[in-house]
């Protein structure tokens, strides 16, 4: 499977995404430049973290108008698997490809630490094959990661199974203290209705080697190997 990692000016998680796919997942991967207009030849896309355009104005707001985003949008509409991580989540949310908005953390402070997240559905491109309830230990590193939707939108997301990951304690239980940024309903990751676009705040691409504190991120990145080829062929 061939992954593309979209790099915007100010992206800084692109190197980790490239390493995780190459060293951790041992799949083909190449960077995609924000000024490119095509994503032909890629089976899956990763929109990595960072501070695209410095996150000035709003996180992800300027990046989403990059030339590449038209191709990314087409890819999404054709059912291609896309994973947005951290700032990539913000870009997808600004572009309307992922639901919700991301606000400043409730404690107004950047937060870098390891958290536990629970898989809520296995129906998406990046949770395929994972049992709901599976607990994954992943690092977070963000200042604007408070996922927000209105109660109506939340009900809507629940109904359509668009909540993919929630923050939890190490045993998988709900715990308000385990919610690191004040996200609505402890939501850590969501998907579009079709389930091919997944966006999350934690960093699976930094958790691909036990030497680095854990390799459970590979379960998310690797899920697309089971679902992605199918999806890619199907579109």
């Amino acid at each position: 499977m061939r992954f593309g990692v979209v790099t915007f000016p100010g992206s800084n998680g692109d190197h980790d995404a490239l390493s995780a796919i190459e060293l951790g997942l041992q799949q083909e991967v190449a960077p995609v430049w924000h000024k490119d207009r095509s994503v032909d030849g890629f089976d899956a896309l990763i929109i990595p973290g960072g501070f695209s355009y410095g996150d000035y104005l709003r996180a992800g707001a300027i990046a989403r108008f990059s030339p590449i985003m038209e191709a990314v949008t087409d890819f999404a509409q054709q059912g291609g698997p896309i994973l947005g991580i951290c700032n990539g989540f913000q870009v997808l949310a600004e572009a309307g490809l992922a639901p919700g908005v991301l606000l400043r953390n409730a404690n107004l402070s950047f937060s870098c630490r390891w958290v536990h997240t629970r898989v809520e559905t296995g129906r998406t491109a990046f949770s395929n094959g994972l049992q709901p309830g599976t607990v994954l230990r992943l690092p977070i590193a963000h200042g604007e990661g408070r996922f927000f939707v209105t109660p109506e939108e939340l009900a809507h997301l629940e109904e359509r199974q668009q909540i993919v990951f929630r923050y939890c304690d190490e045993y998988g239980n709900d715990d308000p203290l385990a919610n690191p940024n004040g996200s609505t309903d402890s939501i850590a990751g969501v998907c579009n209705e079709r389930g091919n676009v997944v966006a999350l705040m934690p960093h699976p691409e930094r958790a691909y080697d036990p030497l680095l504190g854990g390799d459970e991120g590979l379960q998310i990145l690797g899920a697309v190997l089971r679902s992605g080829v199918e999806a890619a062929v199907g579109r």
Partner: peptide
Amino acid sequence: TYDHTIMS
């Protein structure tokens, strides 16, 4: 408040 996991 410092990112210490980036660059893996």
